[in-house]
Design a protein around this nucleic acid. Sequence first.
DNA 1: GCTTGACCCTGACGCAGCGTCAGGGTCCGA
DNA 2: TCGGACCCTGACGCTGCGTCAGGGTCAAGC
Lengths: 268, 268
Amino acid sequence: MLTIGQLAAYAGVTVRTVRHYHAKGLLPEPERDHSGYRRYDALAVAELIKIRTLAEAGVPLARVRELLAAGEEEFAAAVAEIDRRLRAEIRERQRHRERIAQLAAGDSLALPPEAVAYLDRLRDLGVPERMVAAERDSWVLIAAQQPEHMPLYMRIKDRQLDDPVSVRVYHELDAAIDCEPDDPSLVALVDEMVRQLEAISPEEWEGNAEIPDDLAELLDSVFLDSVPAAPRILALLEERGWTGWTKLEPLRAHQPAPHTARVASRSS
Amino acid sequence: MLTIGQLAAYAGVTVRTVRHYHAKGLLPEPERDHSGYRRYDALAVAELIKIRTLAEAGVPLARVRELLAAGEEEFAAAVAEIDRRLRAEIRERQRHRERIAQLAAGDSLALPPEAVAYLDRLRDLGVPERMVAAERDSWVLIAAQQPEHMPLYMRIKDRQLDDPVSVRVYHELDAAIDCEPDDPSLVALVDEMVRQLEAISPEEWEGNAEIPDDLAELLDSVFLDSVPAAPRILALLEERGWTGWTKLEPLRAHQPAPHTARVASRSS
DNA sequence: GCTTGACCCTGACGCAGCGTCAGGGTCCGA
DNA sequence: TCGGACCCTGACGCTGCGTCAGGGTCAAGC
């Protein structure tokens, strides 16, 4: 006959753990000796090891209790389920390894150097600081979610700046931030944007890694919340066959377009 | 500017989580607007994602706080450490997968069929139930720790029973359980045992998977605790050049022996 | 102007799976 | 008979949030 300490030692757990399992009804309370000590037989060791095997595999104790009482069939199904979970957890850790490796590799700043250079160039081109800050915030969000795509995005944006017309759009957008939704100058602004969009050749967008829809949605909502004229701008764009903002794309009905989405100049 | 809900959505966490990080000092409390709502900038998103990346990799929040304040060097060292832990956890899950697979494969009884058959044969040979029960308990412990070695152990034990002398030892051991330590019949018993041990050819033990030392130690201590004459028996065995009980082996000085340990007939 | 629903606020308790006292009693060897 | 290693119960502590409770706020629609 074993004491609780011996039982625990056999199974490689602490005495506290054994008592916890009694309290939770996982392991039946054994007989007591004349002075109230618990006394176990060898079968208790087998039971305890079985419980630990499940618990260490991450099965919640409440579930372990169910499984101990379950039939062979349910048990086998549960084991299959546990195995699935373990495999999923392994894959998860592997992803986490990659993620923290990226964390260490990046200088752990909010923006990669290309993005900083791009924002500096905006300032040099006379784009108002308010617009630059808005751009920065958007790119911070994108960089946080997709650091690996930033170099591509920045190459695209940088080339956009080679066209003086796009720079003018920034200034107009800046002015538009304070516009009432019915301001007539918005029409001219949107016309300009559309002209630019249509000038982009599909080849230029080859390999454009798409911004995920949910991210685009969030960025759009920031734009909508912070710029009073935003709904009007989007409406005018739709009239001209373009939908969305972060991820501007041609309306299908209007003009059959390449499948790739387009990264627009952004502001929030 | 973002509300707490938007911030949480960007980073893929709950609002509660963000507040928790404020309370724990992981994320600085931002400005409040006129009605007391928290207002965040985009940099907070980057910070929050960094925190989540670490937390999801299993870093305790208190440690995350340290790392956020740490220099590049310490951070890199910590990341290496985290990576080691993740790899260890992956290996751990792989072991757990094997363990639960065994759990499902075994009929989840305390003893495999070979062991049950062996115990039944003991009964058939007239070994007293008390001895059979003691044997069973020992094998339950061994089976719990080393299910994969049970077939081998049982083959060995089964062959032992082919020799009528070993059966007699069981009866004598049964009598010995109640003996006082100075009972003279113990001497004859031990002599018999030694004769048997020396009759075992080394080849018979080829591939004998060793019982781990700690398990043997525990089994020995059960024997010592439950049989008053145990210390005397062990002493007599040592006089004759054998040490241990669960894992009986020749004393080196006395007789240079094969390296393989020997599984003795056991009782507790 | 009023309601409705979706937000926001603080504070506090709940959960798993034990670790860790606290404040006792027990057992065993020297 | 003493000391140290066990055993007992009961209760609080820890992490990382989930989940009320009991409020205020804001925008939209009627």
